[in-house]
Amino acid sequence: MANSSGSVRPLPSLTDQQPVTTRRKRAWWAREEVFLGYALLLPALLVLGLIVGYPAVSGIWYSFHNKMIGFANPRWVGLQHYSELIQNPAVQLSIWRTAVFAVVSVGIKLVLGLGVALLLNQNFRGRALARGVVLLPWSLPLVVGVLIWSWMYSDLFGVFNYLLIKAGLIRQPLNFLGDRDLAMPSVILVNIWRGFPFFAVNLLAGLQAIPDDLYEAGRVDGANRWQLFRHITLPGLRTVILIVSLLSFIWTANDFTSIWVLTRGGPGTATEIFPIITYKIAFIGLELGRAAAIPVMLLPFFTVLIVLLTRTITQREAES
């Protein structure tokens, strides 16, 4: 090929050739799949923001206002509700009771659930039926189950008092739900009854995920039953135990229905945990702002629990 000067320009080699752009250069955001990914997440984020974020932000906003149900123009009060509630003995006691209720209940549910899971993990006739029966408290509608317990506790007709009197253990009926000393243990027992199947089923699943080889190896090394449990079963269940305990703690601390149906927080305030006192302040006392400050006050604590739970789940996923 000759040019105007008559010299011949060599053809560019393939290696020297610049890439030929056949399409118009796209914007950065169109090239980035990340953006598209976020766009796809947007609907889910919007739904989450609407059903989780909005109520949460509203609650926090209310907690800084003197907002009464049915009355317009909430008044900004800053941290007044918080300072009042922190000094309020009734609220302090309700938080203490919540801790007692949740810790004792979760602790017993864990031990009971583990025991039942270990039993159900054995081979025996009717195992499938037993596994189904264990789930009954969990599958019964909550209010129905709790009402049955309230009848069983009754001083007038309750089966517990009937049996105790018949057995000669007591002369007068015990006032399970009306006695200050018995009311909290009584509502804890109902919560345990309701919640232990959750532990049992999850721990059973955890037990079945532990390879038999480990037990075989342990036996070959001469480990006894306790040592097998201590060094193989418990470590194998550690993550499951942590997850179900954290979840159960959050649910138990927020258990409104069973206590409301059984005692409404009574006698006096003996079983008034924080969801109950919050409900009373909000829907009976009409003080939405003051009531909102109680759960918001506890939000950091529950956030820590939730972060811990999420990390544990993520770790478990990574391990598996």
């Binding site: 309230s150 009754s154 001083d155 007038l156 009926p173 006032n175 739900l177 009306g178 005692t263």
Partner: peptide, 12 residues
């Protein structure tokens, strides 16, 4: 009064 009155609901 029966001792259980301190735990009765409205139908007690």
């Amino acid at each position: 009064m029966p001792p259980g009155v301190t735990g009765w609901d409205d139908t007690g």
